[in-house]
Design a protein around this nucleic acid. Structure first.
Lengths: 228, 228
DNA sequence: GAATAAAAAATTGTAGACAATTTATAACGC
DNA sequence: GCGTTATAAATTGTCTACAATTTTTTATTC
């Protein structure tokens, strides 16, 4: 949530960004231990820098810091996962509505170009790019809606979503369909705020529905359940 | 945005909390310089601890860290201020709507008790308590709506609002009227989500309207303007 | 006397060393 | 052989001293 840009970026933000990206792109899996010395060597920096970056990542919920034990990539619970999707519906429906009010031809062009890119990546079978562009579409809406604060919140929500998808995805594909994105863009182009909100709501529902968030247990499954 | 509670609170969070509170309660004014050594002495801790706390506060936008120059209490621009209020309307209207869906008699009792407290503080002329309780009312709605994530965002927004009020308040009083809070509670009690959203929207509009955010200039007023 | 330049002081940034804690390994008793 | 305890290794947490930068003060010159 770094709204107030510092004139010159602090040195630890590069490490922060690289770890952030690795988690958002689902390379670093939930539960992975992040040893300070190890990271310090990889990035060729002092341990203090790594420490700062990890502290910032904890603030974003991507990393869990256990005192005297170290840093781990977070493992959001089912309850937390549902909450994140609720927050996304809350914020993103409002954001598309706002975008419908302030929309410009340039904005629509950018959105359409983005959807085209998504289609191309999918057609080319480039799953890495497909995943990245899917998230970027949602961020683009946030950007065009013109609220830097909510854009930042959205960025945070998307990275948490990545973590959640890795943890709870089922066999079936878990990308947002580009067709749903295209429909949303069409509604925005028409200035139909209600329709855009409705589509966005269902789109996020769809995303959540593809995951296995059905268990009632709060805690990670008990040993007894696994042996029953 | 500390969702994942650590088992034992890290030692720097107490310093963080005390500075946070001083800003939220409007004791520390925007632009105030925060020297590390000075703070270290006040709290009787090492400078490293202070550093951690300041980094966390920067993340929340309450403190601006200028490289090699030090930490200052943030001075949000008019543009940022407007954005914060937009974000508040976005989130808080959805939050009251959600609360209407999941509301319980206990929740209503807590809300009514809170409004009573607000009235008492105001009647007693206790401005410090009045300010604190005003913010707490909004947080209480967030808590009862049952979204830990959005509660955290709301907490962040409220502390930024405090900063904005200090910077842009006019002579007239800038508290939320407790009557408006009472009306919102009444709407929630009736389960009237639309009405509650509408009231909350206007309540925040009202808050924003009491401030002097009319200037068109982005930058802090130019010397020429002051000498014209 | 004002402006510039140099030196000194104050403040922040960083690194390395040491202490505390946890995890892994090995020895021991049953 | 299994569980327990003691030792050793690895890892994190913290502090102190030093380097880099900025601000203030002082001296100099026009």
């Amino acid at each position: 949530m770094n709204l107030a840009e510092t004139t010159t970026d602090a040195p630890h933000v590069e490490i922060y960004n690289r770890i952030w990206l690795s988690i958002a792109e689902r390379k670093l899996k939930p539960g992975t231990r992040l040893k300070e010395e190890q990271l310090a060597e990889i990035f060729s920096v002092s341990r203090a820098r790594v420490r700062q970056a990890l502290a910032a990542l904890e603030h974003d919920g991507l990393v869990t810091l256990v005192p005297n034990r170290g840093a781990f990539v977070s493992q959001p619970s089912i309850e937390e996962a549902r909450d994140i999707f609720f927050a996304r519906r809350t914020i993103e429906t409002q954001l598309v509505a706002r975008l419908c009010e302030v929309v410009t031809p340039t904005a629509i062009a950018r959105l359409e170009a983005h959807v085209t890119q998504e289609r191309e990546a999918r057609a080319a079978g480039d799953t890495k790019a497909t995943v990245r562009l899917s998230g970027a579409f949602h961020l683009l809406i946030g950007e065009l809606a013109g609220s830097p604060y909510l854009w930042d919140v959205l960025r945070d929500l998307l990275s948490r979503t990545s973590l959640i998808i890795v943890m709870y995805q089922t066999r079936s594909q878990t990308d947002c369909g580009p067709d749903e994105h295209a429909e949303i863009v069409a509604a925005i182009a028409r200035g139909d705020a209600d329709r855009a909100k409705h589509l966005m709501n269902h789109h996020i529902d769809h995303l959540e529905g593809q995951l296995d968030l059905e268990q009632d247990t709060q805690e990670p499954s008990d040993l007894r359940d696994l042996l029953a």
